[in-house]
Nucleic acid binder design. Structure first.
Length: 575
RNA sequence: GCCGCUUUAGUUAAGUGGUAGAACAACGCUUUCGUAAAGCGUAGACACAAGUUCGAUUCUUGUAAGCGGCUCCA
């Protein structure tokens, strides 16, 4: 039994149950989706608390052993049959040919091309659940009316449903928004504003490590860090072409003293072109590779903001490479290797997507079809020549060119775009960038946009869930907790040990509150600190620390120097 | 931005048309402790604004923020 058939049949049963309780409802569409199904409809008076009732009615319908019987009818007849719903009529109009498919189960008739179980007895009445009510635009377009969508999850067996529910609960425990608060990594303030997180010293420590590591990796492939302002004249974005396409999502800033508009920058590339353009370049200077961690601002719609994964202020481990066409392949390859190295260190699963333009909507992009064809071909060659497995994403390209994106899957199965390498023939042209070639003639360089983990802030959020807050030692916000057994008797020694850690550059805290040892260990464990060092009389006598490792328990005594040597090794190797 | 839901102390969270009961955290006192919560006590909250009402934390409306979706994601 194909699970899609069960899911889609349940959508019909849902609609059938809805029409009984809400006969005025105008139905839209009801497909099977990953993990379940949904049905879109224009409905009045439906409340979330109605769902269990509808769910039960669906179970009753299943037990009636209804047959699904398909029949093709002419469009004229179909229009009469479905005259109640303008959405169905629109679908009938859109269908090519003279006949349309209909399916009957029990008293319910739906416009449908098929894909059902033969009889509802093939559905386990306890293997599905209606989960939520949401709004959804008709045919997925913001310009259309918003319908009500009822979501359900469904599996072949009740056991699989239980497993799915359990997995969702597990994922919730990893939610970076909750862990971020519990582990004191970042906060939001109503006064500061939505999408504008404040990182505590702990969160800042993690973010810094993420950025430092990206910087290390990109230095290895020749990128030099620059620093650029957070705002610039509107003119810059008019030249780059962003102003026309993205004006609505840029924050406008005004000066009291000049009439000209300024914008907070949503990306670094236009500014980087100006570093390139600051002096004459020779072919011998290329590639020119620059990297930037500047804060970026995007005026996202409020409903799109979410935790650290969608922000109004964030940075990117961003870089741009200006090179000749001959150098494209080599440059892409070195960046791709750096990204893969990073993903290995973070122990993340990913796939590579070749993101292409959608030739059906050229108005969404800059540049002509010929340039697009040329650049897309170049990227595809790189992937096939190096035997790199990839998928294709039509319509996923940037406005100025195709790209390779790294897609990773998080703990609850959501996919995130992290690293990216993008080819751009357009901006260099628009900014009039040139270099003098070996024959003395001026040529236009190619621009490569790239990021390793994308946005460190967003990646931070993903990592919190990836590690369930238990960061590896090198990333941990606090790496070591030093716990004197008696605050009074052992704090002095604890502080002496701490001084050595401070000199060694570790992140530590001394827990010298007047609390029981058990309680302090519990607190440190809940903060997921990798190493707890217990110090009491025995350790003082031996000039040592009692080492307790997260997840491993008591490791026994180690001399302070020995411990420093041990964790230094772990930090350098990022394990 | 759109559809729906939510908002009670720092956090979790009970409850009511007559202004709130608790746990953890905080603070104070006692305790000075060997690997995941010592004991006692103190203080602290109904998101904001308007309306209905003798009286609103509770009902209505609006605003803000959050959550689940949709749309978007250079």
């Amino acid at each position: 039994m194909e699970i899609e058939k069960i899911r889609h049949s349940l959508a019909h049963l849902l609609a059938s149950a809805i029409m009984e309780s809400f006969p005025k409802t105008k139905l839209g569409i009801g497909p099977a989706i990953e993990n379940g199904f949904y049905y879109d409809m224009e409905i009045n008076g439906l409340k979330p608390e109605d769902l269990p009732k509808i769910e039960n009615r669906m179970r009753e319908l299943i037990k009636e052993n209804q047959e699904f019987t398909g029949k093709k009818v002419s469009k004229l007849i179909a229009k009469k049959l479905f005259k109640q719903s303008p959405y169905k009529l629109e679908l009938i109009k859109d269908i090519e040919g003279k006949l349309v498919g209909t399916y009957q189960n029990g008293k319910f008739l739906d416009l449908c091309k098929g894909g059902h179980v033969d009889n509802t007895k093939e559905i386990d009445p306890h293997s599905f659940k209606l989960t939520k009510i949401a709004g959804a635009y008709w045919k997925g377009s913001e310009k259309n009316k918003m319908l009500t969508r009822i979501y359900g999850v469904a599996f072949a067996t009740a056991k699989e449903l239980d497993e799915y529910v359990a997995m969702q609960a597990e994922a919730e425990k990893r939610d970076h928004r909750i862990l971020g608060q519990k582990l004191d990594l970042f906060v939001f303030s109503d006064l500061v504003g939505p999408g504008l997180p404040l990182y505590t010293f702990r969160g800042t420590a993690v973010l810094k490590e993420i950025k430092n590591y990206s910087n290390q990796l990109q230095k290895e492939i020749g990128y030099q860090e620059v620093q650029t302002p957070n705002m610039n004249r509107a003119e810059l974005f008019k030249v780059s072409g962003h102003y026309d396409k993205y004006q609505d999502s840029m924050f406008k800033v005004s000066s009291h003293y000049t009439k000209e508009d300024y914008y907070l920058k949503p990306m670094n590339c236009p500014q980087h072109t100006q570093i390139y353009a600051s002096k004459p370049r020779s072919y011998k200077d290329l590639p020119v590779r620059i990297a930037d961690f500047a804060q970026l601002y995007r005026d996202e719609k409020t409903g799109e903001l979410a935790g650290l994964t969608r922000l109004r202020a964030f940075s990117q481990d961003d870089g741009h490479c200006f090179c000749t066409e001959d150098q494209i392949k080599e440059e892409f390859k070195s960046v791709l290797l750096a990204i893969q190295k990073a993903m290995k260190t973070y122990d993340m699963n990913y796939k590579i997507r070749l993101s292409l333009w959608d030739p059906k909507t050229p108005e969404k992009y800059l540049g002509d079809a010929k340039t697009w064809k040329k650049s897309q071909q170049a990227l595809e060659e790189i992937l096939t020549e190096n035997n790199i497995e990839h998928i294709k994403g039509i319509g996923e390209a940037a406005i100025y060119g195709p790209k390779m994106d790294l897609i990773c899957k998080d703990s609850i199965g959501r996919e995130w775009q992290l690293g990216t390498i993008q080819l751009d023939f357009i901006q260099p042209q628009r900014f009039g960038l040139t270099y003098n070639d070996s024959d003395g003639t001026p040529k236009t360089p190619v621009m490569i946009h790239r990021a390793l983990v994308g946005s460190p802030e967003r990646f931070f959020g993903i990592l919190i869930e990836h590690y369930t807050g238990a960061f590896p030692l090198w990333l941990a916000p606090v790496q070591i907790a030093i716990i004197p057994i008696s605050a009074e008797k052992h704090s002095e020694y604890a502080n002496n040990v701490a001084k050595q850690f401070s000199q060694a550059g570790f992140r530590f805290e001394v827990m010298s509150e007047n609390e029981s040892l058990g309680k302090k260990i519990r607190e440190a464990e809940m903060q997921k600190i990798p190493y707890l060092l217990i110090v009491g009389d025995k350790e003082i006598a031996a000039n040592a620390v009692g080492v307790r490792q997260r997840g491993k328990g008591d490791l026994g005594q180690l001399a302070v120097e020995e411990f420093i040597k041990k964790i230094n090794g772990e930090i350098i190797n990022k394990i």
